[in-house]
Design a protein around this nucleic acid. Structure first.
Length: 418
RNA sequence: GCGGGUGUAGCUCAAUUGGUUAGAGCGCCAGUUUGUGGUACUGGAGGUCGUGGGUUCAAUUCCCAUCACUCGCCCCA
């Protein structure tokens, strides 16, 4: 059945919205470049295995949210639900692990079959960065600093809070998982149904439950920090010290857990209260086990992804660069349209934003010029064309002067238009 | 996937216990103004009342289904 609606959970990016998306991406790209993270892009389609083996067999993303593309032979191809696994795959495919470290910035669409809400779409757009080959905690600090710089540049950093936690290395996490499980099993019947299910699938997830009853039970639960071995603890301490030195405000949240399986050590999340239940704007962590899980060499990694739609929802209009007010070319009659286009061509070559007006008399066209918020109108009528002049009208003040066409650019420069 | 709310013009919203031609503001188009826009005044266009079915003499209104959006949960950026 055909319908004129867009597919559920997808959105048209009309110019006003697209402008926000581009702005966010451009700012992020620029700041990433300052940190030495060049942009790359991987295909939107990947083999299902790329995500299945890395994200964890129990995560919702893998078990029920992937868009599978019609099978061709034995190939199982999916629309990517996130960016990191594809980039890790690319690093291995291209043999890039020869020279470390590797740094990447990316931006693009991701696809998840979720129930749509504001700030939660089936086609969502993310920016992200990945750093491979640095196990030093200063790598984590730099990656977080990069994220914070972007949020700051978008005037968002004070509108939420950066929370961090550590999951520890694998030994620490396994140890903690067992202790937590033992504790929670004693309280199993009092847990919420959701959490009872998580007990089997992903017990650590119970830590950031929203259920009040669960929260009470968790007050008596063992803390992850107590299970950390010395190495994991030291790593986390260094990250905190690094963030303090760089004046990046953060809050420790021992209940912060990442959903995807490949994370270890530091986990961080920038959350806001402004977006309702979709509060996570940017999140990431360290994923030292990812590359080897995929069958590549054992290479440590750390990175994050940020939701462009969520940032766009928070973005204030006045942080966007102002729209450039165009010059409007106004022939007083259609017979002078071609002269108008010639003048437009010359001015555009010099970098002016010039819009041609079509149809109607002078009054009509001025009205149109007004509607596109033109700053100046360049009027070309019989007298102007005959004398190779143009009437330059300031649409804010109404002032106008007639001058030779070859002097227009100079005059506009004097007035600070370019 | 679970539970709630909403759907009327391009946008924001009205419409009495179910009743005859579904309204307003903004926006859009045109005119007052055939070489001067913004303001003002006047006029005009624009609606399968989300969609499909049911009840009824009669449905935008009541019932069911469905789609979309939305809030919370789940999940996650």
């Amino acid at each position: 059945m055909t319908t004129l609606q867009p597919v559920r959970g997808t959105h048209d990016l009309l110019p006003p919205e697209h402008r926000k998306h581009s702005y966010i991406i451009n700012i992020a790209r620029k700041i990433a470049a300052c940190y030495g993270f060049p942009e790359m892009a991987t295909p939107i389609m990947e083999f299902k295995d790329v995500f299945k083996r890395t994200l964890g067999d129990v995560s919702d993303i893998v078990t029920k949210e992937m868009y599978e593309i019609v099978k061709r032979g034995d190939e199982e191809i999916v629309l990517r639900p996130e960016g990191t696994a594809g980039i890790a795959r690319s690093v291995i495919s291209n043999g890039l692990t020869q020279s470390m470290p590797l740094k990447f910035f990316y931006a693009g669409p991701m696809f998840r079959y979720e129930r749509p809400q504001k700030g939660r779409l089936r086609q969502l757009h993310q920016i992200g960065i990945e750093l491979f080959g640095v196990s030093d905690p200063m790598g984590d600090v730099e990656v977080i600093a990069l994220a914070f710089d972007i949020l700051k540049a978008l005037s968002l950093s004070h509108r939420g809070i950066l929370e961090i936690n550590t999951l520890g290395d694998e030994a620490s996490r396994t140890h903690y998982r067992d202790r937590l499980l033992t504790y929670l099993r004693d309280h199993e019947t009092n847990l919420s149904p959701d959490s009872q299910e998580r007990l089997e699938r992903n017990p650590l997830r119970i830590l950031d439950t929203k259920d009040e009853g669960d929260k009470k039970i968790l007050k008596g639960a063992p803390l992850l920090t107590e299970s950390l071995n010395a190495f994991s603890q030291e790593m986390f301490m260094k990250i905190q010290e690094g963030l303090k030195t760089l004046h990046i405000p953060f809050k420790l949240n021992p209940h912060l857990v990442r959903g995807l399986d490949y994370y270890c050590h530091v986990a961080f999340e920038f959350t806001t209260a402004e977006l309702g239940s979709q509060g996570a704007v940017l999140a990431g962590g360290r994923y030292d086990g990812l590359m080897s899980t995929m069958g590549g060499p054992s290479v440590p990694g750390v990175g994050w992804a940020g939701g462009i739609e969520r940032m766009a929802l928070m973005l204030m209009e006045d942080t966007l660069p102002p729209l450039i007010r165009p010059l409007a070319i106004i022939p007083t009659d259609e017979i002078f349209d071609i002269q108008g286009l010639s003048l437009a061509q010359i001015l555009r070559e010099e970098g002016y934003v010039v819009e041609m007006t079509y149809g109607g008399n002078l009054g009509k066209r001025l009205k149109k010029a007004n509607k596109i918020n033109a700053r100046y109108a360049l009027i070309l009528g019989e007298t102007e064309v005959a004398s190779h002049t143009v009437t330059l009208k300031n649409l804010d003040t109404g002032e106008q002067t007639q001058l030779p066409q070859h002097q227009v650019s100079e005059m506009l420069k004097e007035k600070g238009v370019l």
